[in-house]
């Protein structure tokens, strides 16, 4: 049996060899390896910062941090490809603030408000439904939808209906009316959303909008609507706009001359010093000189 070997010396040598590589910090350093970043929460030595050798201290400190980061990277799982060894970076840990504000909730429509008070919940329905008449699956609504039924070739006249009434025409008109109603409701929802965002009653908002339209239309004529048809209760709407004013026809010639000379001064003036140079002429001069010497 061999005598037990003393390996302390060998361990010392081994440790000295890797002394540079093994950096120790009292508080463990945090890494975000996806960003190749290390965050060191350890306090720096105040005395060293104020001493003469501050540069050396900072260099040594940051070298230690970089060493730790590189150690961590080398500790990662690697994969070998034709181009060489690559470390697999983990997912990002750091949280970055978003550049855009958090999107606001879309304003609730009238139906959504009503459904919320009644506790009506949205149910998922399939997009396509089976149409027994044709034996095909058709969209529930919309283009070529099941309920549109615009392709009916025959519609029975109801018992109590006028026999000369065009049922196809009636159907088209009903559809038209439904579309119009929906459009009106959409517009109303948009208006109410706008008003509630401003914190005013939507009826007040509509009133303001109409008032503005009336004032605009009244002030669009030279006579300020003096000869327009009067609206009901029009006196309540106040119209205040500046009227255009002209100089008297026979203003003294000297005064008029001064005013016009001032304008003439302004219009002909080049905006900058450079604008005064006629570039085209300058280019032409240079070119003609060149061609003469050539």
């Amino acid at each position: 049996m061999a005598e037990p070997m003393d390996v302390t010396d060998q361990l010392e040598v081994h440790k000295a060899k890797y002394d540079n590589v093994m950096v120790e910090r009292p508080v463990p350093v945090e890494f975000d390896l996806r960003c190749l970043a290390a965050f060191d929460p350890n306090p720096v030595d105040d005395a060293a910062l104020k001493s003469q050798s501050v540069d050396e201290y900072i260099r040594a400190w940051s070298r230690g941090g970089a060493q730790l980061l590189i150690n961590a990277i080398f500790g990662l799982e690697t994969e070998s490809t034709e181009e060489g060894f690559f470390a697999k970076l983990p997912e990002m840990v750091s949280r970055l603030p978003r550049s855009k504000p958090v999107p606001k909730d879309a304003p609730k429509t009238r139906w959504e408000k009503f459904a919320a008070t009644k506790g009506i919940q949205k149910r998922k329905k399939s997009r396509k439904v089976f149409d027994e008449a044709t034996g095909e699956y058709k969209p529930r609504f919309g283009y070529k939808g099941k309920d549109s039924k615009m392709d009916d070739w025959l519609i029975p006249v109801p018992d109590n209906a006028d026999p000369y009434e065009d049922q196809f025409q009636k159907k088209r008109e009903e559809k038209r009316q439904r579309v119009d109603k929906n459009k009106m409701q959409q517009r109303r929802n948009a208006e109410e959303a706008w008003a509630s965002e401003k914190g005013i009653d939507h009826r007040e908002a509509r009133k303001m909008q109409l008032n503005k339209l009336i004032v605009d239309s009244k002030t669009s004529t030279a006579s300020f609507g003096r000869f327009d048809k009067k609206l009901e209760n029009e006196g309540k709407i106040k119209i205040r706009r500046e009227k255009r004013k002209f100089e008297s026809t026979t203003i003294p010639a000297a005064a008029e001359k001064d005013a016009q000379m001032r304008i003439a001064e302004k219009i002909g003036k080049p905006k900058t010093k450079d604008a005064n140079i006629n570039i085209r002429k300058a280019v032409h001069n240079v070119r003609s000189k060149k061609s003469r010497t050539a």
């Binding site: 001359k257 016009q260 000379m261 003439a264 219009i267 002909g268």
Partner: peptide, 11 residues
């Protein structure tokens, strides 16, 4: 206006 020459017409 016809440019700066309007000055000649007024003055």
């Amino acid at each position: 206006s016809i440019g700066r020459n309007i000055a000649h017409l007024i003055d």
